[in-house]
Amino acid sequence: MRNPSDPRALPGADPHTGNRLVDPVTGYDTTGHDWGGIRELNTPFPRIAVIALLLTFLYSVITWILLPAWPTGNDYTRGLLGLDQGRMARDGYQAVDATRQGWLAGFSDPDFAALASDDLLMAQAMPAAARLFADNCAACHGDAGAGGPGFPALNDADWLWGGAPETVAETIALGINATDNSRFAEMAAFDWLEPAERQALVDHVVALPQGTAATDSPGAVLFADNCAACHGDGGTGGLMTGAPSLADGAVIYGQDAAAVRTTLRHGRRGVMPGWSGRLSGTEINLLALYVATLPEAAP
């Protein structure tokens, strides 16, 4: 019976001398295994690997002692620091809130004229309002408030419901055509008109902003009978009921013949969500004042 620690008993060893194949490059012998030509060196365990493993284990043990770590049935080890991630998150938000409270509190009072004339307060608040606008409004209205097809521009002087900050704040809070409490406006579908009549109306509406619309054409008569109640005499708008002026350059859906024909045929019922559930009253006031500054910033 051979001693198992006898080198001659190891795999791949010479049965007489106990020597094993030595790799000429590293000077280590091999383990004696051979798999289709693959051998392995009998390199001693590198000490640095053991030290590294111990260090990372030490880091883990310290972490386990300080932080919540191991489950114990229905509970877990709380850790010496007593940290709770929910409380830490709340504290963090409160700390950020605290840095804002100084100036933000002023905007809970909707005295817009006083707020807008307080230059110091506005200088502190408008960068924050710009972030709010970019994060909540810009997706539809554009990052400079210039609007786009289907979404009205906010940086001009043309308003559907009114551009005073009080009115804008109400529009933001309630939305348009979103819920029962929203502002409501609908462009009816004039699909019951004869195609020839619709075409006459189209020609009239397309000509309105150019100032070339005749006042006694069949289109003008149709317009006075069917459209002026909302869009105003001569399509000048300004009634602040959600119906746009058709005589200025501002358009929502387009004022070329094809767009007007589509609008007449199918009607329009644009939606803006109400934000009162997602933004605080203070934030809405902030946004209303910001929107009022957009026309000045427009090129």
């Binding site: 590294a52 493993l53 880091y59 972490t63 919540p68 191991w70 489950p71 877990y76 709770d84």
Partner: peptide, 21 residues
């Protein structure tokens, strides 16, 4: 829960040694 996160974090750090090995 925080404690599950701590375990995940510490084992990830210990994992570095066998990976680099």
């Amino acid at each position: 829960p925080y404690w599950v996160q701590t375990l995940g974090m510490t084992f990830s750090v210990m994992l570095l040694v066998p990976s680099w090995a």
